[in-house]
Design a protein around this nucleic acid. Structure first.
Lengths: 235, 235
DNA sequence: TCCCGAAATCTGATTAACCAAATAAGAGCA
DNA sequence: TGCTCTTATTTGGTTAATCAGATTTCGGGA
């Protein structure tokens, strides 16, 4: 299940139907948090869908914390309330697939935060790893070799140093999506690559000095081009 | 696959082993982006694991954009580079399960952004929905009924109005986790619930007036208690 | 009437079997 | 030798069978 595959998929049409049927069932039967849903086999028959698709749909709702599957017992409604459940299911069904602009916008948001937090919380070990990533990046650039990967690892090292596992997970989720889209849209290559080294070094130094404001600022500079690209794009 | 189940699971130990074996295989065989991995059956035999666990591991790596499965053809390495792949696999394997503090911290970060963006981009329809959620919330609170769900829906309505599908998805992912942990830790109930109405209304008004700075500020006020709780917690 | 417990049933999870498409291999012809 | 078409095999995906454990049922005893 890839980040965008989470939403659109060959089977997503069927699964969306199943999800809405589950919601309807919950409302029709007035099921409450903690109540048990019909078994997978029953729903498979009732909704005229393969048990696999039923399972996958349940997994998705479980991913969003709306259901809870217990091994040899059944699938239960999480204690989150019917009203909230209905609202969230609607949101899930209406979710657009992430567009490139929203990805970039979100990435910038996350990166500014991780830079700030990394400056506040980085351990010496974190700093060493960031330094290593920076050096690997610089070496590649100076040799004129493509350094997209090293660039990525530098940013992920900062994310790790931020000491926030949720942020770290989110970064890992959206970053590869960015990279692949990047190559697709050919947005990257900013002519003079030495600028990249300078900007990276500035971020590293700010984190080393444990200056959160400066780290955020330097990160902002680093994303300036992307930022403009993002906000000059037509809606 | 729930948000935290993404990391730890009954089978995660096995799957982590498989993931690292896949990485080792890629390095040992010097496979490059675009190259084909051995078939699921082969790996199942080679790694002495059920094909289901192999598939699940591949799905996780696919989720992070490192692999790409093509139906009747095979599983391929995404064009993301071996260096980056190694780094990301290490990150994935080392990922801690999200702790409550990091969840709250991330939620605040996201909510401040969505409030700001909602003020900038909200359509009239968005505004109506936010208003509806606010009224539902207020009514519950005034009647002395628990309004956690309506609270949640109000925030999700704002997220929707922010017009950023990635942010929207992230919010949907972490919010339920917050809610359930909230009830578990009993952090919520701020004595006087009318404060909640006041704060929500202030946020709504700022969004209505299309004042992004004010919206962010009001949202910050709303999260003040949580913020303090988050940053006063021992590490 | 109530309670205990064994057996039958039901459950999600796991495993194995099957499918259709895509690729590879090989035979046949020029 | 080189090309084409048929056939066989491999592949991820899908469906069916099986498993172990939890739950329910119901009869027997007090």
């Amino acid at each position: 299940m890839k980040f965008d595959t989470l939403i659109k998929n060959e089977n997503s049409t069927i699964q969306n139907r199943i999800i809405s049927e589950i919601r309807d069932l919950i409302n029709y039967k007035n099921l409450e948090p903690g109540d048990k849903l019909p078994s997978e086999r029953m729903m498979s028959e009732k909704f005229e869908a393969s048990r696999n698709n039923i399972r996958e749909s349940i997994h998705r709702l479980e991913f969003y914390g709306l259901l809870k599957s217990i091994p040899q017992s059944g699938t239960f409604i999480a204690n989150i309330g019917i009203v909230a459940l209905n609202g969230m299911v609607d949101d899930i069904l209406r979710l657009d697939d992430p567009d490139f602009k929203s990805l970039v916008e979100t990435r910038i948001l996350l990166e500014l935060k991780t830079a700030r937090l990394a400056a506040l919380r980085r351990t010496n070990e974190d700093l060493d790893q960031i330094k290593g990533a920076l050096e690997a990046y610089s070496e590649k650039v100076l040799n004129g070799v493509d350094a997209v990967q090293e660039d990525l690892l530098f940013h992920l090292a900062i994310a790790k140093a931020a000491g926030n596992s949720t942020l770290n997970t989110l970064m890992l989720m959206i970053t590869p999506e960015i990279i692949t889209n990047f190559e697709k849209y050919h947005v990257c290559d900013t002519g003079n690559s030495n600028v990249g080294i300078k900007e990276h070094t500035a971020i590293y130094k700010a984190i080393k000095e444990q200056n959160p404001k400066k780290a955020k600022e330097k990160m902002k500079v680093h994303f300036k081009t992307l930022y403009q690209y993002c906000y000059n794009l037509k809606d």
